[in-house]
Amino acid sequence: MSAAAVEITGLVKRFGSVTAVDGLDLKMPRGCLLALLGPNGAGKTTTVEVCEGFLRPDAGTVRVLGLDPVREGRALRPRVGAMPQGGGAYPGVRAEEMLRLVAACAAAPLDPPWLLDVLGLSGARRTPFKRLSGGQQQRLSLACALVGRPELVYLDEPTTGMDPQARHLVWDLLNALRADGVSVLLTTHLMEEAESLADEIVIIDRGRVIAKGSPSALTAEHTEDAQLRFRARPGLDTELLSAALPEGYLVREATPGAYRVAGTVDPQVVSTVTAWCAQQGVLAEELHVGRRDLEEVFLELTGRELRT
């Protein structure tokens, strides 16, 4: 257990004139669940593909379990499981056949039928890959990443295209992996996924690390004011509520039904908000005072404008 699970120093990767990763440093200890966050095009997948040995770095060093993923890939691959973005299987292969092939590549694999069952794929065992739904393809890909009982897994946006039940299953699975000592490098767009699961979060943008730390450290560090959050039915008149509050407070509906009150929160403010809601005949649920959530931090760091 000497070397880190992943250790990246000064990684640069260019595609033509585009610099996808621009001097990235990252250290992920063994047994850690690290979430790599960033807007589209930030360099997350490129970083993971360099770690997988699919791409050669233009500069910098990458060590995975102490090995060079390109030169020592053959020694490394049996120890690592990967879930690349967008699946990966023969178009006509049946789900169980594909998993059995990947299992045959490992010395002591998990039982393929059991794993299919756990991932809710037993009904699709004989379904050709191209006829599986997007979420089913994702779950099969996850099964392929785990079946070899690896020390380290790369999961590139594992819950994309999954329904809520499947997402919760994956989160349960990720917790079980971590509890059993598997190192997990996860990329995701879901802030709540990263915030609730990860030991370490690394936010990257334009190929560089712009923030890192534990979820609680990140959210505590990047906040000046506490804020008040609550849920209620969508479409409340936020201007009216702002007017009911003292000067300088701003209320906005972040996503439908999720409201945020920015400004110094004191008992009077909480009382005003709940009273105003009562007046409107609305039940304010999940009333929460405190630090901002990871999504707020992320947007503050990476900007709110849409990337083109």
């Binding site: 691959r77 590549c105 010395a107 002591a108 070899g148 009982r149 699975l173 079980a176 509890a179 059993d180």
Partner: peptide, 13 residues
């Protein structure tokens, strides 16, 4: 998942 289900046991087939 039972504890130990995913305990690493890597190696090539």
């Amino acid at each position: 998942f039972e504890p130990g289900t995913f305990t690493p046991a890597p190696g090539a087939g």
